[in-house]
């Protein structure tokens, strides 16, 4: 008799272990804080501040997802094999496929939580930068308070109950950002007038100033969510690749290969698309490499554009197929692998 239950404890352990590593907390805090700071860093740009904030925030989320997903996947496998914990677990009634699948699932769960936090931060940052020459502090301050609050609550809990600070702060941050987003969302439920987005510019002594608009509510730009979902899919794909590399390589070589793959995937249209018609190898490589351009759709949002959810669904199918292929190779390798 096998225990299907061993999958969940392993996945859960990965979810518990990864946030306890201070690196995850520091990286996610830095990235979310940076996204939250973008509106006032870019606010004095001459026009299109909102687009710049959106593009920068999505780019930060993309970069952050990769920086988190790849090391987390490498750590979950390579470090466990090297540290001996993989061997210790595989000496228990746990099949190798289940071990690897659980590790992937655990890392994916953490990635989804991070993506959720980053997406909410992007939505708030976008609202805060919607009005030219003004920073919507009412949307940013709750975000900052959520981060500070998470650290304070984690400190108190750590002091009172000795629970690990890093993971408590990470989970508190996830909850408090959701609370902050909901709170700012509820506040904007009051109907706003048409054209409220347009800044009222006044001229005085040859200088242009934005007129104060204390009560203008900016709606949530839900159209950003498909862009965030696409970035999350890309991170999950790269995470699967990192997991495969980590079976045979150490953390640093796995990181190098994964980022090399990422760069090649970014340039695959330029490098391989034209050659694919002539060379079979170029064709194979072109189809084997993930084309990250499919997952970077920030430009589609320009001028009020939308990314259809059908497009996200087809991208998800592409990501699922590619990830499954990579995981099947990983399962095959790991099943024959010797674990010391």
């Amino acid at each position: 008799m096998k225990y299907p239950g061993s999958f969940f404890p392993l996945a859960r352990l990965t979810c518990v272990e990864i946030p306890r590593q201070p690196a995850l907390l520091l990286l996610s805090t830095t990235l979310i804080l940076f996204i939250g700071c973008l509106p006032f860093l870019i606010t004095h740009n001459l026009g299109e501040a909102g687009k710049l904030v959106r593009d920068s925030a999505l780019a930060m989320m993309f970069l952050g997802s990769l920086l988190l997903a790849v090391p987390a996947a490498c750590n979950a496998v390579s470090t466990e094999i090297r540290r001996g914990t993989a061997g210790a677990i595989l000496s228990k009634p746990v099949s190798r496929i289940r071990f690897l699948a659980a590790k992937f699932t655990g890392v994916s769960m953490i990635m989804l939580v991070f993506s959720g936090m980053a997406s909410l931060a992007i939505l708030m940052a976008d609202r805060a930068s919607a009005l030219d020459f003004q920073v919507g502090w009412r949307y940013l301050i709750p975000l900052y308070l959520a981060i500070v609050g998470a650290y304070l609550i984690a400190s108190v809990i750590n002091f009172m109950t000795r629970r690990p600070f890093a993971s408590t702060a990470f989970w508190c941050m996830a909850i408090l950002i959701l609370v902050a987003f909901t709170w700012t969302g509820i506040r904007s439920e009051t109907p706003h007038e048409e054209g409220a987005h347009e800044p009222q510019v006044i001229e005085h002594a040859g200088h242009t100033h934005a007129a104060p608009q204390p009560h203008v509510e900016v709606p949530i730009r839900w159209s950003l969510l498909p862009a965030c979902a696409l970035i999350t899919l890309a991170a999950l794909m790269l995470q699967a690749l990192a997991l495969l590399c980590a079976l045979k390589l150490g953390v640093v070589p796995s990181l190098s290969v994964s980022f090399g793959f990422f760069m090649m995937g970014l340039m695959s249209d330029y490098l391989l698309a034209s050659r694919a018609a002539e060379s079979l190898w170029a064709k194979i490589l072109y189809f084997a490499l993930p084309n990250w351009q499919h997952f970077w759709m920030a430009d589609a949002l320009t001028g009020g554009g939308q990314i259809p959810w059908m497009y996200v669904a087809s991208a998800a199918l592409y990501a699922l197929t590619w990830t499954t292929g990579i995981l099947v190779i990983a399962f095959g390798i790991f099943d024959r692998m010797e674990v010391c």
Binding site: P9, V16, E17, G84
Partner: peptide, 26 residues
Amino acid sequence: YLPEESYLYPYLDARETLRFYATLFG
């Protein structure tokens, strides 16, 4: 099995460690 080195998850406490291994056995 008790390995040569104590291969344990450093961020888990003693009780969590045993709970995790116990759960693997159902």
